Amino acid sequence: MKKAARMLLVLAGAAGAAQAQAQAAVRIYGIMDAAIVGERGGKEGAVTKVTSGAAAASRIGFKGSEDLGGGLSAFYTLEMGVKIDSGQVDATGTLFNRQALVGLKGGFGAVALGRQYTPWHNTLVQVIDPFNTGYAGTAKNLFPHFGSNIRTSNTVTWFSPRVRGLDVELAYSAGEQSDSSGKRQFGGAVGFVDGPLTLRLAYNSRNGDAASGFVRSRNTLLGAQYRLTSLTLHAGYGIDRGPDASPLGNPNNPYGGVAPTPSSDGREVLLGVAVPIGQGKLMASVMHKDDRTAFNQDGSSWGIGYLHALSKRTGLYASYAHIRNRNGAGFTVANNTEAGTGNTGYNLGIRHSF
């Protein structure tokens, strides 16, 4: 009896140690970002305000993993957006609007279910845009980076292992409407990495609802990145087709004249560079939007920014961008969190990660 009791104590201690080890894998992380943002050239006139998340959306998140043995592990992420300027949950009002997922990882890659980023978004932010879709110079100024192009709910994803430089990413999102095809979305990406060169081709397709006749919109994105000793070169080319393929960040006609119309057939191109300078990084890009519809509402933009590192976690930044709109186009200088109100904008801010 005493031997059995001692065995139970040993097993309980081992279980406690294993639980402690598993809990040690849980991580709380986040970004606190706030900036003075100035906007000019829109119908609101000259706007100056304090904004949360101009460079990178302010957030707090929880990540965890558990080793299940045999090369298999479970993982999860819960991430919510916060507004540093007001202390509120982000504008969506949903607690874990940014990410909420659980999955398994092993030799087959990683499979996850929940609210997740699209392969299209991952390509734009990780490969193409030197601003990582933040700051006034963000690729969001001309690339269709709003709504379900960024992240989707009810999503199943698979990330393959990288083999000989190649990897694959797939995503399927159920619309969860009475008609199974309504709001359904799927996409994928194929990537290749060879030393300093990264190439990635991404695709995103989504259906409308019954009111729109389930009309499909598609976005294709080709990105390239080349890392040199002293700088990193970025390039991207996008193709958009369909009624909801290129939603405007701010559709409220900020310039007058012909009302801005979302393009149902467009092309975008970006060339950019990131250069380490001193304790920070200089970022710059030029972009062009070619609207191939009868409205011909093209746009061209340029942006420049600098992030100065005070430490590994804290930095100060400044960014400026300008857009030239044609034929009544309504493109606005955005940042990571807001769509913007004018065709010229700047950010002066501080960000801290933990």
Rank of each mutant, 00 (worst) to 15 (best):
A4D: 00
M7G: 07
G13L: 15
A14S: 14
G16N: 15
A18M: 12
Q19H: 10
A22S: 12
A22P: 06
A24D: 15
I31D: 15
I31M: 12
A35C: 05
G38F: 01
E39K: 09
V50E: 09
G53Q: 10
G53F: 08
A54P: 13
A55Q: 15
F62V: 14
F62E: 10
K63Q: 15
L68M: 14
G69F: 13
L72R: 14
Y76C: 09
Y76K: 11
E79N: 13
M80G: 11
G81E: 07
I84Y: 03
G87M: 02
Q88Y: 09
Q88R: 14
V89L: 13
T94K: 11
T94A: 08
F96D: 07
A100P: 01
G109S: 02
G109N: 04
A110R: 14
A112V: 04
A112Q: 12
R115C: 05
T123H: 02
T123D: 03
Q126R: 06
D129V: 10
D129N: 14
T133L: 09
Y135E: 09
Y135D: 13
G137C: 03
F143I: 11
F146P: 02
N149C: 07
R151F: 08
S153N: 15
S160A: 00
R162L: 07
V163N: 02
G165T: 10
L166I: 00
D167K: 03
V168A: 05
E169C: 05
A174T: 13
S180C: 03
S180M: 08
S180G: 11
G182P: 01
G182N: 10
K183G: 04
R184Y: 04
G188C: 08
V190A: 05
V193L: 09
D194E: 04
L197Q: 01
L197A: 01
R200M: 09
S205C: 07
A210N: 07
A210D: 03
F214I: 00
V215N: 02
R216T: 10
S217E: 06
T220D: 03
L222H: 03
T232F: 01
A235L: 00
R241M: 09
P243N: 02
G249I: 14
N252D: 15
N253P: 00
V258C: 00
P260D: 11
R267W: 01
V269R: 04
L270G: 08
L271Q: 07
P276D: 00
D298T: 03
G299W: 06
S300D: 06
S300M: 07
S300C: 06
S301K: 14
G305S: 11
R313E: 04
G315E: 14
A318G: 15
A318P: 10
H322R: 14
H322N: 08
I323T: 10
N325K: 11
N327R: 12
N327T: 12
G328M: 08
V333R: 06
N335A: 06
G342T: 08
G345Y: 03
L348H: 01
R351C: 06
H352V: 10
